[in-house]
Design a protein around this nucleic acid. Structure first.
Lengths: 260, 260
DNA sequence: AGAAAGGTTCCACTATTCGGAACAACGTTT
DNA sequence: AAACGTTGTTCCGAATAGTGGAACCTTTCT
C-alpha cells in the first residue's frame, strides 16, 4: 500500500490496519498475527483499539474487516480536496470530448492514487475506483506524473520501485522506464500500451503544481480494439490541454489558500 | 462524526484527525489547538505522527487537510464490504424499477452512513455521497434502520440524539420519533417527507441481519414535486421487496463466512 | 476424553507519550 | 528600529500507556 515506517504507537496501529486492508481475503486473529511481527497480547490490544475507534469491525466468524469510520473520513477527504475540485470541470470536459473513461490521479510514493474518474458509459460503480492505488510505472497517469518530477527525485523514486510484470508489455527495468520518461518529457504525453492490463490503453499528461508539491496526471483510457492512431493522437493533444487548464486554474485558485 | 471516547494514544490521534475532518474549512495549527483540548507540544507531535502516516497533509499555507491514505483505505473498505456486495444487485433492481435515486445505508451510532448509492440520471459525482453521514432520525434510511432495532437499544439510542431542526418538517422530539417508528414497524416502510432537506422525499425499508449485528436500510428518493401518491405507495412495496431480498441473500451467503 | 489450535486476560516492566517551558521565526505595533 | 504578540517547533524530566511473556479460557479436531 504505502511506505511509512511503523514507528510510534500510531504507526504500529496503522501498520496493523494496513495488513487488514491489503489482505485479499478476510483475516482472523491468527492470520494477522502471522503477518504482523508482534506478540499475541500486544496485537490483541492493538486490534481492540482499532475496533474501539471504528476503524475495523469484527465479522461474525471473528475475521476482521475495515470499518465504516474509514468511509466517513474518505468521504470528507474527497469532498474537501481542493485539487480535485479544481480539476473536476476539466476532466469532465475531457470526458465529453473523448467519450471515454478519464482519470485523475496523484503520485503517492511509487504509486498513483486515483482521485477522480468519469466512466465512459455505465452510470454506476465508478466509486470502486476512487482511492484505488496502482503502480506508477505501468499506468499512463503514473508515468506522466513521474515525468513531472525533478531528476533527483525521479531517480530516487525509481530506485524504490520493485518492478512486477502485469502483462507482456509491462516495463520491468529502470533503464527502459527512464528512457520512456525522457520521451514523455519531449512529447508531453505518456502512454500506457496494455502495460498494466491487457486490452487497455491510455493517453495521459502530467500535472504539477507550481511549487512541485503536487505531482499528478490526467488520462483518457480505452480498450485497445477501439483505438485508432488518429484518435490516439487527437486525444494526446486534448489531454495535454486539459492538464494545462488544470495547472492554470491551480495557479489562480491556490495562490491565497489551500492545496491538495 | 461518531462517538469513540478518545482514550489511549490511538484514540487521541483519531480525535485530532476527526477535528480536522469535520472542520468546515482548513485549519491551521492554532485552530486545531483551540478545538483539541491538549497542550501545544503534545498536539504538535500528534499531528506530526498523523502526517508521517499520510493520514493528513499540510497545505502550503500550513493548514491541514486529509491525506490520500484515507482514500486508499476507504477504497478497500468499500470494495471488500460483503454486505454492500450482497445488496448491490438488489438496489440496482430497485433503481431500474423506479428510475429514481436509491440509497443503501447502515446505522452507525445515531447516524446513518451511506454505503452505496445509484443516482437517477447523472452518471457522475455519485462518489461524493458514499461514506457520507446523515442523522438517523430525519432520513428515510435512518428511520427504517431505527425501526429494526430492539426496543431497549432503540430507547438507548434515541436518548443520545441531540435533535436539530433541518427543515420545518424535521422531527425534533423523542416522543414523535417513537410514535413514527411504531408506525414504521406496522407498515414496514419509513418515509422522509422533506425532513432533512426541503423538496426531497423518500420511501425506505429496514434491513437487518439475522443476528441483529447489522442494522441498515434501503431507500428510493425523489424530489417532492415528482411524487404522486400512486408512485409513492408502489415504491413502498418494491422497496420492502428489495429489503427482503437483501436479507434473504444475507442469510444464504453469510452463513459460512464474512459479514459487513 | 484428550490434545491442539485459536483467542483472551493479566501484570510487572519499560519505552512512549505527556506537557510545561524555552526557543525560533515572522508580522505588527509603538 | 526596538519591543511585542502570534504562530509554530524543539527539549526533557515525569508519568502514563503500551509491551510482551505467560497463564488462562474456548472451540475444534482426533
Amino acid at each position: 500500500m504505502a511506505p511509512a515506517r511503523d514507528t510510534g504507537t500510531l504507526g504500529k496501529a496503522i501498520a496493523v490496519l494496513d495488513i487488514i486492508a491489503t489482505a485479499s481475503e478476510p483475516l482472523r486473529f491468527t492470520d494477522v498475527l502471522r503477518l504482523a511481527d508482534q506478540p499475541r497480547g500486544t496485537l490483541h490490544r492493538q486490534i481492540a483499539n482499532l475496533i474501539e475507534e471504528g476503524l475495523i469491525t469484527v465479522n461474525r466468524d471473528q475475521s476482521y474487516g475495515l470499518g465504516l469510520r474509514l468511509l466517513q473520513f474518505a468521504s470528507r477527504t474527497w469532498a474537501s480536496n481542493a485539487f480535485r475540485a479544481i480539476a473536476e470541470p476539466h476532466i469532465r470536459t475531457l470526458h465529453e470530448a473523448t467519450g471515454e473513461t478519464v482519470h485523475l490521479g496523484v503520485l503517492h510514493g511509487t504509486d498513483v492514487v486515483y482521485l477522480d474518474k468519469i466512466e465512459s458509459r455505465q452510470n454506476i460503480r465508478l466509486v470502486s475506483q476512487i482511492g484505488n492505488t496502482a503502480p506508477a510505472w505501468c499506468t499512463g497517469v503514473g508515468k506522466a506524473a513521474l515525468s513531472a518530477l525533478a531528476d533527483p527525485d525521479l531517480r530516487a523514486l525509481i530506485a524504490e520501485i520493485r518492478f512486477t510484470r502485469f502483462t507482456p508489455h509491462t516495463i520491468t527495468d529502470a533503464r527502459t522506464l527512464l528512457s520512456e520518461i525522457a520521451a514523455i518529457r519531449r512529447e508531453g504525453n505518456a502512454y500506457d500500451r496494455e502495460e498494466h492490463e491487457l486490452g487497455i490503453c491510455c493517453v495521459a499528461a502530467p500535472v504539477r503544481s507550481a511549487d512541485g508539491q503536487l505531482i499528478a496526471g490526467v488520462s483518457v483510457t480505452a480498450p485497445a480494439y477501439r483505438i485508432t492512431p488518429e484518435f490516439f493522437s487527437s486525444w494526446a493533444a486534448i489531454t495535454r490541454a486539459a492538464a494545462a487548464a488544470i495547472m492554470r486554474d491551480m495557479a489562480i485558485q491556490l495562490s491565497p489558500r489551500r492545496s491538495a
